[in-house]
Simulated scan of single mutants.
Amino acid sequence: MFKVTVETGLDDIKAHLSTCGYEVIDMEKCVRPVQAVVFSGLPLSKPLTQRVNSDVTFLVNATNLTKEQVVERLQEPFC
């Protein structure tokens, strides 16, 4: 299953990703490797590199994107 960590506060995106079959992990609780990170583009309380494993392969800045567009961006590298 494709594992994605999502920044706290992007609840509509988290819910949509879950319904699309992604394993969604809240960024505040992420302690294992994931294939992608979805973030808001706003300053984080801690640097992103401290929040996720260094094996992250894809970053998605969700600023000004719909939840559907976030899914499209996650699918791009595999098309």
Rank of each mutant, 00 (worst) to 15 (best):
G9I: 02
L74R: 08
N53A: 02
G41C: 06
N64G: 02
V37C: 01
P43N: 06
K3F: 03
Y22G: 00
T57D: 12
K46E: 15
Q35D: 10
T5W: 02
L48C: 01
K67E: 09
V71I: 11
V60L: 04
V34P: 03
V31D: 13
V4G: 03
P47S: 10
V56F: 03
M1A: 08
L59I: 06
P33T: 09
N61A: 10
C30Y: 03
Y22H: 02
R32N: 13
Q35R: 10
H16K: 12
F78M: 11
T49S: 13
N64S: 12
S40C: 01
F39G: 00
L48V: 03
M1E: 08
P33E: 11
F58S: 13
T63E: 15
H16Q: 10
P77G: 04
C79Y: 14
T8Q: 08
T8K: 09
V56E: 01
K29A: 13
K67W: 03
K46T: 09
L44E: 05
V24S: 00
K29Y: 14
D26T: 06
M27I: 10
V31Q: 13
F39S: 02
A15D: 13
V71A: 03
K67L: 10
L65T: 11
N61H: 06
C79L: 15
V71D: 00
E76H: 12
R73E: 15
S54E: 12
V60R: 01
A62R: 00
A62G: 08
R51P: 02
S54A: 12
T63G: 10
S54F: 08
C20D: 12
T49A: 13
V6F: 04
F58Y: 15
E72C: 08
T57E: 14
S45M: 10
T49C: 13
T49W: 11
S45G: 05
K29T: 14
V70T: 09
V24L: 05
K46G: 06
L42C: 11
T5G: 05
V71F: 01
N64I: 08
L44R: 01
T19Y: 11
T57N: 14
T63I: 13
L42Y: 11
I13D: 00
V31T: 15
P77T: 02
Q35S: 06
N61K: 02
D55L: 12
L44V: 00
R51V: 05
Y22L: 00
P33Q: 11
D11V: 06
L74G: 03
V34E: 00
V24G: 00
A62N: 07
K46S: 12
T63R: 14
E72G: 09
R32M: 10
P77W: 07
F39M: 05
V71W: 04
E7C: 09
T8L: 06
D55C: 12
F39R: 00
P77F: 05
D26V: 04
E28N: 14
D11I: 15
Q35G: 14
G9H: 06
T5C: 12
Q50P: 04
A15I: 11
